[in-house]
Amino acid sequence: MMDKPTNNRAWFFVLPVLVLVLFSSIVPVMTVVNYSLQDSMGVNNFFWNGDSWFRDLLNPDTEIGARFADALLRTIAFSFTALAVEVPLGIAIALCLPRRGWSVGISLVIMALPMLIPWNVVGTMWQIFARQDIGLFGAALTGIGLPYNVTQGSVSAWVTIVVIDVWHWTPLVILLSYAGLRAIPDAFYQAARIDGASRWAVFVNIELPKLQKVLVIAVLLRFMQTFMIYTEPVVVTGGGPGSATTFLSIDLVKIAIGQVDVGSAAAMSLVYYIIILTACWIFFTVMTQIDRRGDR
């Protein structure tokens, strides 16, 4: 057997990264873990509390458990609604974009513009936009007789948040789908034309399968972002009316900072974290499997 040369100096080079990771992730996460397992009677007065924060949180019969279950369901519903609108819409718009010529650059830039606006600016814009008295959107809807009121109607609030997210992030799906469509060799379209295939058949049998990879990425990114939505509802609705738009992240902040209920909030953030991690892992597994199938 050959002895591999060992050089302990390598640790020295890795050290700065380890220190960085220690302070950026491990210490904060461990602090949260710490809070989630203890109860506090004031500053620096902690005692062991076991898993009771978690048990309360995951039991829908307790007050905090019911609240968590509600917020979780609301967040999942929001993610699915946003994805169900953004993905088909993004693909449809990508299909309509020009394929060549000077108009390509212009259309892509116009499409991408909403993505460049910071979240809280988007929120503020829409907060004004949705007002019944001076907002174009709100006033128009009220004008045609729709019962639209962001601050009082829970349906209005919910729809507004979905519309904001669609407006803000469908461009991402458009750009990804457009790139995927451009990667399909012209020969495929030609072959389909020669076969006499209809436009729908071309979409189902050529474009959609070829878009599979980019769509998985698009869905993954959009799922993560919608599942963590915070800024827009906080700015536009403040989580209301009632708790209609109180998503997990908003509820978390309310519990942690509003009520200073540190133990529950810590347990909640860990569960929240695990849910997102699991979802990402599932997506990642699916994605790599598609990759492997395509490589053969």
Partner: peptide, 15 residues
């Protein structure tokens, strides 16, 4: 009534 075969291998990926 035309059929064509290309340099790239063109088949429907999902069939």
């Amino acid at each position: 009534s035309v059929a064509m075969v290309y340099q790239q291998f063109v088949n429907y990926p999902n069939l």
